[in-house]
Amino acid sequence: MTTGLLFALTGVVLFAAGAAALLLVDHLLRRVLAFNIMGSGACLVLVGLAQRNGVPDPVPQAMVLTGIVVAVAATGLALALIRRLHAQTGATTLPRDGADND
């Protein structure tokens, strides 16, 4: 097993853990964190898999670099939306759907 493959496998674990957390936690800040962990896992898979035979590939590296910057911007936007929600309603979680259907 090469280091690159190990990175990719770690990325899979991070992605799965982030996805599970996204579904399980209610606090919006934690959801944003979980989503970021999913994104980091995806980036790790992309970069690690591309260099699994030991030679780094610049193309996925450049894509991941772009992805990181976009992820930072998306996180900032998500935090702004959470603050707006908190300022207007005082809530830090989304209202539950179907509470009145059950």
């Binding site: 976009v70 998306a74 936007l77 702004a80 707006r84």
Partner: peptide, 28 residues
């Protein structure tokens, strides 16, 4: 790759960042 062969990605990326910042300005 970033600026020549895949310049599209970088061009759209800076546009996405601007849109995100405008979104922040609208939200706050």
């Amino acid at each position: 790759v970033l600026l020549n062969t895949r310049g599209y990605d970088t061009l759209l990326e800076i546009a996405v960042l601007l849109v995100a910042l405008i979104g922040v300005l609208i939200a706050v």
